[in-house]
Amino acid sequence: MTVPKSILVVEDDSDINRLLCNIIKKNGYTPKPAYSGTEATIYIDQQQWDMVLLDLMLPGLSGEEILKKVNGEKPTPVIIISAKQETQTKVDTLRAGADDYITKPFDVEEVSARIDSCLRRYQRMTDQESSEFRHKNLVLDTDLQKAWLHGKDLSLTAREYNILVLLLSSPKKVFTKANLFESVWKEKYYGDDNTINVHMSNLRSKLSTADPSEEYIETVWGMGYTLKT
């Protein structure tokens, strides 16, 4: 089952925010409303978004500040939807990293089409890129077969590295012990919990030592393991 793409809608006007969320739902995606720049930063810190729809004139942090924050994270498409119609504002915002700019009042069908178009473009880019995964302070490059935490090399065994690759490749998925064993060990799983428990414990210990302030792997009791958001 494919998880719907999640889109953060940063717009302080509740009617416009609701309208944009309805457009997103009709396109088959999952919207999350935010009504200020401050609220938006909380959601941006909590998870990775597939897209951000962003007003510029916001209470709290401005749209320009939010755009800068989003660009500092993993590449995320951003569409500006603003009442500012000055050409220079559009040029400055696009050069600052926005992917598209729509002026208010907007046409519902146009917004719908631009969301789809932008997401398709990013998907093509992602498919063509080398496989680099990022989560919190962790970076893993499958081309180099290396991982870093806070910019420092993580010394991992082959099993530990492959467990991390699996978790990072599907960050929202809960992997059962059978999933992990058959994917990493390439053998049939017969309920040997101890093997997985030992490797998972060692991996967690290394992550915790390198970054004591964050937790990277979560145990979902009765199910398995997933990335800690």
Rank of each mutant, 00 (worst) to 15 (best):
L154K: 01
G222T: 12
S183C: 15
Y189Q: 08
G191S: 10
V220T: 08
A158I: 09
K146D: 09
L207A: 13
K206T: 02
L168Y: 14
K152R: 10
K186M: 15
L166S: 11
G151C: 10
D153G: 02
Y189H: 06
F133N: 11
T209F: 11
L156R: 06
L154R: 03
K206C: 12
Y161A: 01
D211R: 10
K172F: 11
I163P: 00
Y189N: 13
T176V: 06
N137S: 03
D141H: 11
T142P: 01
T195G: 00
L154M: 13
K152T: 09
V198D: 04
A147W: 02
Y190A: 13
K177Y: 03
R159S: 13
S213L: 12
H135M: 01
T219F: 10
N202V: 02
S201V: 11
G191K: 02
E182I: 11
L207K: 00
E160A: 08
L203Q: 04
F133V: 00
T142G: 08
P171L: 03
F133I: 01
M200E: 02
I217H: 05
E218G: 01
N162C: 12
E215L: 15
S201K: 07
N179T: 10
V174C: 10
K152A: 15
L164T: 05
N197M: 05
K186C: 03
S205Q: 12
K173G: 05
T226V: 14
A210V: 09
I217C: 02
H199T: 05
L140R: 02
S183F: 06
S201G: 13
D211T: 06
I217M: 03
Y161H: 12
K136Q: 10
G191N: 13
V165T: 14
L166V: 09
N202I: 00
Y216P: 01
K186I: 03
K172Y: 14
E214W: 13
V139E: 00
T157Y: 12
L140F: 00
L154D: 07
A147R: 11
L156Q: 05
G224F: 04
